[in-house]
Amino acid sequence: MKIAIASGKGGTGKTTIATNLFEALRMQGQVSVELIDTDVEEPNAHIFIGGGFEVEPEKHQLEVRIPVFDSDKCTFCGRCVYYCEYDAILMVKENSYIDVTEDLCKSCGACIYSCNDGAITEKKKSLGEISVFQTEQARFVEGRLNIGSPFSTPLIQAAKAHKDTNSISIIDSAPGTSNTTVESIYDADFVVVVSEPTPFGLYDLKLMIATLDHLRKDYAVVINRFHGEYHKVHEYLKEKDITLLMEIPFKKDYAKWYSQGKLLVREDDELRKEFVQLFDKVKDIYLQKSMYR
């Protein structure tokens, strides 16, 4: 079973929920569990669970191919420039000049396909790195985008491809409701949406719910850092008949532990039990819904 943790807004606590759910299940020891960090621009899960994985990771570079032009063979016909949708090829016919702007190139291969003169070869360039940490009890997979890489979806796909099908996979996804988030949650069986009780949180939650409805996903919501003063997120969930899985109150201790890179469930036993219950609820909803499918 694959559970994606998502949020419309950044900083609502996706990583907190993903890492603590992972740790609570790992500590309970009844299911085999893995965590996949697909927030590749800012992968942070390792900060919290790193201590449990003091093993050398298996590393895989995600390489893409970018064109190399041979200006002796090139006839400067311009076909590749026409084929490139990203304006990444700069050609000055008069000066017999042709080259690629690497930051714009998405490695689609259109230029090399289009060339009739054999003037284009390809070289490899790293887009990012996948690290797989494996201990006897658990697995952790992280995708990490190189700084300055122009796109991230292949890296998200690659991180997910390292999943272990026999485990419960918890997927920490990219924030937002755009293509990268969709790539993270596309094949999830269930989505846990993390929201914060503020006007920004509510606005972005609504966008997230619309996205999940569009994708026909099963989902439920966690409200994080609840101060007991803004109730509109609760009201919205009630009105839409959306399950509220869990409500985590704002506590200075939680903020402190989080800031130190500590897992809350290791410090607070009650909270750990709540996370196990959260998983049981998710499983129940998932099983119920799949009976009707």
């Binding site: 621009e41 985008l145 700084i147 122009p150």
Partner: peptide, 28 residues
Amino acid sequence: PPGIGYTAIATITGVDIALLISEPTQSG
């Protein structure tokens, strides 16, 4: 935007100054 991806790159190119908002956490 948050992050270091394409939207972040498109936001910062050519600006006079970038103000980074950080928070005192390991993730921050």
